[in-house]
Structure formats: C-alpha cells, structure tokens
Amino acid sequence: MTRKKIYRPLQRNIVMLHFIQGGVLVNMDENLISKKELLELTGISYGQLYRWKRKNLIPEDWFIRRSTFTGQETFFPKDKILARIDRIINMKDDLSLDQLADMFSPNPAEASLSIEELMKRNIVSQTALNLYLDQYGERNIFAFAELLSLYVLEKLLQTGEISLEEGKNLIQVMEENYKKFAGKECELLLIRKMGISIFLLLSSAADLFLETRAKVVVRMNLANMIEELKIILS
C-alpha cells in the first residue's frame, strides 16, 4: 500500500509532463526530425541553427527534447522546420536576421494600407472587401489587424469553405477577439453541425474532440497567415 502511495504522485507527474510538452506531443501524427538529420538534410551548421534560435527565427517550442538510447536528443516538427529553414536560407541575403525575425514572429506588423492600394495589389477581392465594409462601415485605411481579418476572409471565401453569411461572423470573431491573442500562436476553427456554424479561436495547439455529427470545416494557423500577409505586404 505504501508503495502505491509513493508512486501515485510520480505517475501523475509523468502524465502532466506529457501534457506540458503537449503542444507538440499531442499531435503525434506530425512527424519529427532529429537535430542531426535536420543538419544533414539542410546542410546548415550548429552555429547557424543556434544563431537563428537566438534571433527567434525558430520558436522555442519547436525544440522538443526527448531521451533516446544515446541520451537526450532534440527533435523538431519536420514539415514546419524544413519550410522555415528553406525560407530563411532563401531570404537571408535580402533581409537582415532581425527583419526576418519580425516577419516570422506572430506579432502584428506596423503596417497599414489604403483601399486603393489593397485593390491594386490584389490582396483582397471586391466581394470580401464589400462584406467587410458592410459590417464595419466605410473606411479608407486598414491597420494590420484589420488586414489580417480581411486576408483570412478572402482566403476562406476563395476556397469556398465558408458562405458570405458566415464571413460576417468570421469578421466579428476576428475583430473582437484577435487582440487578446496578439503575439501568441493561435488557431482559427470553423465547426459545423446540421447547418449551424461556429467560429472558434484557440490559443496554441490544443487537442479537440467533437461529437460525431459535428465537423471541423476549417482549421487554420493564424501565425502562418500573419507570416504570409507580412511577406505580401513587404
């Protein structure tokens, strides 16, 4: 009996640890790549990897520490890190590391665009823009947060995943709540059940379980959207 008592908290701790690391561990389907393989595959050196980490080009929570038979090893989510390193290597000649860090950070950029600029650069279609203006009244200048809602709206309308009516709800949820998530990894979800749709904003990667008839229609990482938008704007 006494033995059980000693071990129970320990077991709980182990479970807890899995949850804490969870951000990535939960997504077990995501394949991982070890640091060694990563360096071999991409041809970068330890010095570069650590420099990029230091400059926040690679977020801290992509470094997943696991024990292997040779001791502690660091793993990365494979698709994310390969895409990121590819982008860094391609862009590091044009931009400084600090500028790159700004681009990859989930923090909103200091940017604003006028309507003419938006249409000219073809960032947003007329339909999406009209929908937005209907909801929030006429305006000429868009700040970054508003551009982001517009961009996401445009994206989802174009893939046909949402209807115009749902688009209104999307704008509302983005405008009202996105500020609370500023600077954090955040996901946008659209869940539909029997014709009723609900938008959700989730901070970081959480596990989600739904009843059988409900369906996740859209699951979108807003940090990626921010990154894309920043690239378009710059």
Partner: peptide, 16 residues
C-alpha cells in the same frame, strides 16, 4: 550536452 562547429575542451564533464 555541447553542440557546436568548432569545439575545444579541457576539464569538462559532458554527457554528449
């Protein structure tokens, strides 16, 4: 652990 491109060590205890 110690990881780097060029490493020179003396009087160091490291697992890897």
């Amino acid at each position: 652990s110690i990881e780097g491109d060029e490493i020179v060590l003396e009087w160091t205890q490291a697992k890897i």
